[in-house]
Amino acid sequence: MNISVELTLSPLQDEYEPAIIHFIKQLRASNLNVLENPLSTQVYGDYDEVMKLLTVEIKEAFQLIENGLLHMKVVKSDRFEYEPHF
């Protein structure tokens, strides 16, 4: 089963950029499809592979920050090839 996940990591501290950059680079290093925009990062692929990666990388990201939150949306389909029809 393929999924699409949208992630927004928000460290609640002054020095927030290094943790976000590290998190995104770790996601990029996977064999999954990863897209970024200024507000979020999307990961696309097999459910088990995506969730295994996210379990490890979210834990590491939280260990690198003092305080923070992570918004996550999960869609049960691979939306990587999505193009608007309007």
Rank of each mutant, 00 (worst) to 15 (best):
M1F: 04
M1V: 13
M1C: 12
M1T: 11
I3P: 07
S4A: 02
S4M: 06
V5I: 06
E6L: 12
E6D: 13
E6C: 13
L7Q: 00
L7I: 11
L7Y: 04
L9V: 03
S10K: 02
S10Q: 11
S10F: 10
P11N: 05
Q13Y: 13
D14C: 07
E15T: 07
E15I: 02
E15G: 08
Y16P: 07
Y16V: 10
Y16L: 11
Y16M: 12
E17V: 09
E17S: 05
P18L: 00
P18G: 06
A19C: 09
I20Q: 00
I20N: 03
I20F: 02
I21S: 02
H22C: 05
H22E: 11
H22A: 10
F23C: 08
F23G: 03
F23Y: 11
F23S: 08
I24M: 09
I24V: 15
K25D: 14
K25E: 15
K25S: 13
K25Q: 11
Q26C: 03
L27M: 02
L27S: 01
R28S: 09
S30A: 03
S30T: 15
S30I: 04
S30H: 01
N31P: 13
N31A: 15
L32W: 07
L32I: 12
L32K: 01
L32Q: 04
N33C: 14
N33F: 14
E36N: 05
E36Y: 13
N37F: 10
N37Q: 04
P38S: 06
L39A: 11
S40W: 09
S40P: 04
S40R: 02
S40E: 09
S40K: 02
S40M: 05
T41H: 01
T41M: 09
Q42T: 15
G45F: 01
Y47H: 14
D48Y: 13
D48V: 15
D48S: 14
V50F: 04
V50C: 01
M51K: 05
K52I: 14
L53P: 00
L53F: 01
L53A: 02
L54I: 10
L54E: 03
T55Q: 12
E57R: 00
I58Q: 09
K59A: 12
E60Y: 14
A61W: 03
A61H: 01
A61E: 01
F62L: 11
Q63C: 14
I65E: 06
E66S: 11
E66D: 13
L69D: 10
L69Q: 12
L70E: 08
L70Y: 04
L70T: 09
H71A: 14
M72A: 04
M72Y: 05
M72I: 03
K73W: 03
K73V: 06
K73I: 07
K73A: 05
V74F: 08
V74E: 04
V75W: 10
V75M: 12
K76A: 14
K76R: 15
S77Q: 15
D78V: 06
D78Y: 02
D78K: 06
R79A: 13
F80I: 10
E81P: 09
E81C: 13
Y82M: 03
Y82A: 10
Y82R: 11
Y82G: 02
P84K: 15
H85K: 12
F86Y: 13
